[in-house]
Write a protein that binds this DNA or RNA. Structure first.
Lengths: 187, 187
DNA sequence: GCGGCAACTGAAACTGTTTTCAGGATAGGC
DNA sequence: GCCTATCCTGAAAACAGTTTCAGTTGCCGC
């Protein structure tokens, strides 16, 4: 198995999804971006559906990796703010990741298998946020419910992500909104 | 012009989008749902792209209509809660409308024309929410910024809508989360 | 009654895209 | 050196879906 080709192909898939959405996902475009032939895509992944599925698994894995990483600033509040705000950034790969994830969530409305994957990845992220909220609540003597607060914060970030990706907000405005929400919650 | 046929076709489009997404938008499916021929779709709307565009305009208009309607409960807080929670409901047409709107927002990431339409409709909704927040703030002597609060609340509802549509939350859980957020903001 | 027009039909022709597959290149075991 | 397995190519064949258009029906004005 050539892992080098598979990785290049999966990365090319994520880039194609980020550029054209799942609607515009073309074997020819993926092959071009990966520097391989269309036949190689079929050789490694079977058909278009198999390739798309592998690509979405890849997007989900990367989302879960990001969700598990809690940044290293000193206080729980600072770590929480950093984690939530990391969804919005100027780097092309942050935007590509967010766009691909957004496409996966939209697809999950119609595809139960994708819905399961999205729910799992989202639960991991929300769990991380909940732990940080619980620490921040202890640090500050607040009476917030960490689970309910984690749901509010993660849903808010998903909503803001949609605004950012469609150009209604800049990354800075989205980050400022997250900060305002955290201040409003006393975190 | 046969408005009856056009309306049936546009409603059939929204149903098809709600069932299969924009990816699975088929002329044959729309024609079946509307009880007309494929040729009539071409006669009225030109081609698939023209039909899809008209359908998305229709979805946007209906979203704007819903956004402008502020419900009639007595207090601004109650009206605000009712407006935000109306995004989640058991009626099939509420879910169909939310699903179609979710598809439109996903498409808007890639299509500037759709992004403009989504931004306009979202701004209308956010303006209505901001007015209600301003009234509630006056009623309660709070120091919340109505504009910032309206952004937080509408983005939260969009995030929760995604959770509801993918089965991660029930409509009741989403509504309870909206209520918790309003309580947390003192509204 | 006839002609013109709008609304409409549905399948052949067409298009975009995927799938298939004959064949090449390379590496490694014997 | 030969054989086998793996990785890979790219275009013809196949397929899904859209577009086109010849034709039908109904309505209305003259």
């Amino acid at each position: 198995m050539s892992n080098d080709a598979r990785e290049r192909i999966l990365t090319a898939c994520e880039q194609t999804i980020a550029r054209s959405g799942i609607r515009g996902f073309r074997m020819h475009d993926v092959a071009s971006a990966a520097g391989v032939s269309i036949g190689l895509l079929a050789y490694h992944f079977g058909d278009r559906n198999g390739l798309l599925q592998a690509a979405l698994d890849h997007v989900t894995e990367r989302a879960e990796d990001r969700a598990r990483r809690s940044p290293e600033p000193a206080t729980a509040s600072a770590r929480l703010s950093a984690l939530l705000s990391s969804e919005f950034g100027a780097e092309p790969e942050v935007r590509a990741g967010s766009t691909a994830w957004n496409e996966l969530r939209a697809l999950a409305v119609f595809e139960p298998a994708q819905a399961v994957a999205v729910a799992r990845s989202t639960a991991t992220w929300q769990q991380t946020v909940q732990q940080l909220v619980a620490e921040a609540v202890r640090d500050r003597g607040s009476d917030l419910d960490p689970a309910a607060t984690a749901l509010i914060l993660t849903a808010l970030v998903e909503g803001l992500s949609g605004r950012w990706l469609t150009g209604q907000l800049t990354a800075e405005e989205a980050q400022e909104c997250v900060s305002a929400a955290l201040r409003g919650l006393g975190l």
